[in-house]
Design a protein around this nucleic acid. Sequence first.
DNA 1: GCTCTATATTGACGACTTTCGATTCAACCC
DNA 2: GGGTTGAATCGAAAGTCGTCAATATAGAGC
Lengths: 117, 117
Amino acid sequence: MLGQDADDFCRPGLSAAPLGEDRAGELARVFKALGDPVRLRLLSLIASRQGGEVCVCELTPAFEVSQPTISHHLKLLRQAGLIDGERRGTWVYYRVLPEALEGLAAVLRPRAAEAEA
Amino acid sequence: MLGQDADDFCRPGLSAAPLGEDRAGELARVFKALGDPVRLRLLSLIASRQGGEVCVCELTPAFEVSQPTISHHLKLLRQAGLIDGERRGTWVYYRVLPEALEGLAAVLRPRAAEAEA
DNA sequence: GCTCTATATTGACGACTTTCGATTCAACCC
DNA sequence: GGGTTGAATCGAAAGTCGTCAATATAGAGC
């Protein structure tokens, strides 16, 4: 949803011009997905993993919440366009979509920092 | 709360290593503040303003929600460390804290992009 | 086919959010 | 002082979110 085509890289950040309502709505959905400690840790676990993929079977026991809750959070991260999952046999593997992270970082970067890029 | 001292600039991003619970909690609070369309547009209006400051009296009529609601959202943005406000006479002026935005952008930047910096 | 394991979905509950109208607080001006 | 205007706070209603236990689905292997 975000960072999946080249357009997202060309959009100006927050500080370039006031966000329109539609764009604000899109971005809010993604930031909302980041606004939970469990989801942030899930994303970080996946993003920091050498090889780029993590099995859900490794994620679930890393938290003190139930398996359905982890599944729910993974779904929200996926719907926000931050991660993607693939089933291989019995297991499901998730990976981050780095373009999405990069795109969000670009949105946040303040005006001064925009010139350097 | 974020980006207010030098430490925040040196912290590794999401993708460098799994986030600890405490850090994830801190960051989630900030991202949650960004997870609302009205707040994103408020932040963008303030950030994109030449001169760096915007009077609340200019913010309130730019939205279709009530004045108390705008005030509430500004409070949340301030508590997240994203903006700061100052009263001058009858009016209150808000400005963004660019270090906070820069810090958040750095947190998001994926591993590949981290090397370039 | 049946069974077992891994993941997803459902339904429910409490907690938190967003919003509002009413009120209060702060500062200016007469 | 009293009146006016800008902004914050309060209290409540409606909606959303995070979580769980229970259940369903997908695939592997016998």
